[in-house]
Each structure stands twice: as C-alpha cells, then as structure tokens.
C-alpha cells in the first residue's frame, strides 16, 4: 500500500523545507510570518466550517473562542516560564519550553472548548438566527470579561510570550512558530477529517439536513451539537494560542467581530461543508490580505466587495460541499478520504 504513505511523506517533506529554507536564506522573516498567518487562518476557517458548514448553524463568535485560547495559552506559558509581576517567578527552566509548548497549546484548546459550552448548551433549544445572536453575545461576553481582568492587562493587553519563543530559539535555531503552526494545521485537518468522515460525525450533517429526522433515526442530537461546538471552539482556541505566540502579544481588541467576520468570509469563500475548500480559501484569503495591504483601511472595502461578487456569481463558494478528491478523482490514489 504505497499510497498510504504519500500524504505523511509529503507532510514530512514540507516540514523539512520549512525548517531548512530559512537556514539557507530562501525564506526570510517576512515569508515565515506570512506562512504562519496563513496557517492560523487555515485552522480558523476549517474549525468554523464544522459548525457553519457541516452542522449548518450560524456561529459568528469564533473570535471569542480564539481569545480564550490565546489568553489561556499566554498566561499558562508566562506562568510557567517567564518572571512576571503578577504571576511571580517561573516554575520551570526555559530549557523545557519546546516540550511544554504542546501542553500550553492544549490548555488553550481545552479552555476554549469549555467556553464553547456557552454556545453549545443554548443550541439544544435554539437554532438559526437566534443561535447566531447567542454566539455573537458569547464573543462579546468573553471580550468584555478579559478587558476587566487586570491581572492579564485588561484592555492594554498581555505580553511576555516573546521570551518563550526566544527561549526555544536559543535551544535550536529553527523557525519554531512556523513548525508549531504547521503541526497545529496538520492536527486540525487530521482531527476534523476523521470526525466528519466517520458515521459518528456524519450525525452532524444529519442535523444540518433534517434535525427532526436525525433525532428520530437515533442520532443523539444534543450530544452531537455539544461535540461539534466544543471541537470547533477548541480548535479556534488552538489557533488563538498560536497567534498569541506568533505576535508575542494579545489584547482584547484583536478578537472583535471583525476577526469573526474574517472566519465567516473564509468559510463561505471555501464552501460550506468542504475541508479542502476551507484550506484553499484560507490560503487565498491570506494572499489577498497581503496583496491588498497597500490599500490599508480600504482593503476592508475591497474584500467585502469581492465577497459580494462571490455570492452573486458563485454562492456555493470555491468548492461547494465537495472535496478536492471529488473534483480530481485521481487524487484518491494518494489518500483515502473515508
């Protein structure tokens, strides 16, 4: 079964390239940061697609869960490794950072997944527009709550994560954040793909297509909603944690409705219920943002305009609800999408 190893081999090769290219001067700091941002966008759009695409609910508070993950990971990291006015002396030596970092990210994932309960529980009884309002409210609650916690800097924001990244750099001179984000993206796609292609996860799609029928055909709809919302917000938390360490600073203003809107744009651009669509749209979106940078604030005129045109001429997005392997069946030789 040579085709089974194609994807892992390609991923390893990619990882190797990412580590090697900056070494030989092929990928500058600008390129590394760009790829990192792109990776975070991929996690955000793929995770939101689980709720908005596969489950057919309209969550517009993704940034809130991202904030929970970002702050939890930041505080956990600073608490463990960096001397801080509020959190005191570090508990662990800096040398452990590369090993502790996955745990720090996991803490962000878990905290955000728990925050997802705020939306998941009302979803048992509420749906559609009303649930959308709840998701929006949830993200504002989270943002306001953080703004009022003085220990994490309130509205001024929280820093100190840069020292941890520097600590990792001093262990080995590789683009650590790029590696972590690459692993985060791989993990996200891996977990989502396995979820939505199992008969278990297809219960989520049954809820989308006819919730009454799903319940009557023995799908525990409440449990499936709980899992979908928690998984989606947990992954947003992972993206948040990576984002916090990428720019070494978090503040509540980074997690506004604009950030949630970016996530929504990517989901609809890529196609609801298509993982490859989400990945593609995040890549396209990151490139677009970069190209439109000279426009400054005007890019927020240009990008929504593109969205309007997209909805007008291709409302199903780039991929619709199909996957790359549906469009190019030859790809199936290299991986089994099941």
């Amino acid at each position: 079964m040579g085709n089974r190893i194609t994807v892992p081999a390609a991923l390893c090769a990619l990882l190797f390239l990412m580590v090697a290219m900056p070494h030989v001067g092929l990928l500058g700091q600008y390129g590394v940061t760009f790829l990192c941002t792109m990776g975070i966008y991929i996690i955000l759009s793929a995770s939101l697609n689980l709720v908005n695409g596969y489950m057919g609910e309209f969550s517009c508070g993704h940034a809130g869960f991202m904030a929970v993950g970002a702050y939890t990971s930041s505080v956990a990291g600073v608490f463990l490794f960096v001397p801080d006015q509020v959190f005191g002396q570090p508990w662990l030596p800096m040398a452990l950072t590369p090993f502790a970092f996955p745990i720090i990210l996991a803490a962000g994932f878990i905290a955000a997944a728990l925050a997802g309960l705020v939306v998941a529980v009302p979803s048992f009884k509420t749906r559609g527009d009303y649930l959308a309002v709840i998701t929006l409210a949830a993200s504002y609650i989270i943002k306001s709550a953080i703004e009022n916690v003085e220990a994490v800097g309130g509205p001024r924001g929280f820093a100190g994560m840069g020292k941890i990244v520097q600590g990792m750099d001093s262990m080995a001179p590789i683009p650590w954040m790029l590696v972590w984000i690459f692993l985060g993206v791989t993990f996200t796609i891996w977990i989502l793909r396995r979820f939505v292609y199992s008969t278990y996860g297809k219960g989520v799609m049954a809820i989308h297509q006819d919730e009454v029928a799903a319940e009557i055909m023995s799908v525990n709809t409440n449990k499936m909603k709980l899992i979908a919302f928690m998984l989606s917000s947990g992954l947003a938390g992972l993206a948040g944690g990576l984002y916090a360490y990428l720019i070494s600073f978090v503040n509540p203003a980074s997690f506004t409705i604009l950030r949630s809107t970016e996530c929504l744009v990517m989901v609809y651009l890529g196609g609801m219920g298509s993982l490859s669509g989400s990945v593609l749209s995040a890549i396209v979106f990151a490139i677009l943002l970069e190209f439109l940078k000279p426009l400054e604030q005007l890019k927020w005129v240009a990008i929504p305009l593109l969205l309007i045109l997209l909805m007008q001429f291709r409302p199903e997005g780039i991929m619709g609800n199909r996957e790359l392997s549906d469009v190019f069946p030859k790809l199936k030789r290299f991986y089994r999408f099941k």
């Binding site: 297809k202 799908v219 219920g273």
Partner: peptide
C-alpha cells in the same frame, strides 16, 4: 424527510447511530 445531501447508503448508515459500537 430523508437527508438529501447524503447518499442513500449514508442515510442508512447514519440511522444506525445508536448502535455504532464505538466512541468518539
């Protein structure tokens, strides 16, 4: 009330949800 975006086979697979016999 069939699930229209799922194949007939998937419709019948998902309906066995209560006795999937495996966990998340």
């Amino acid at each position: 009330r069939l699930w229209n975006d799922m194949t007939v086979l998937d419709n019948i697979r998902v309906s066995q949800h209560y006795r999937l016999g495996y966990s998340l």
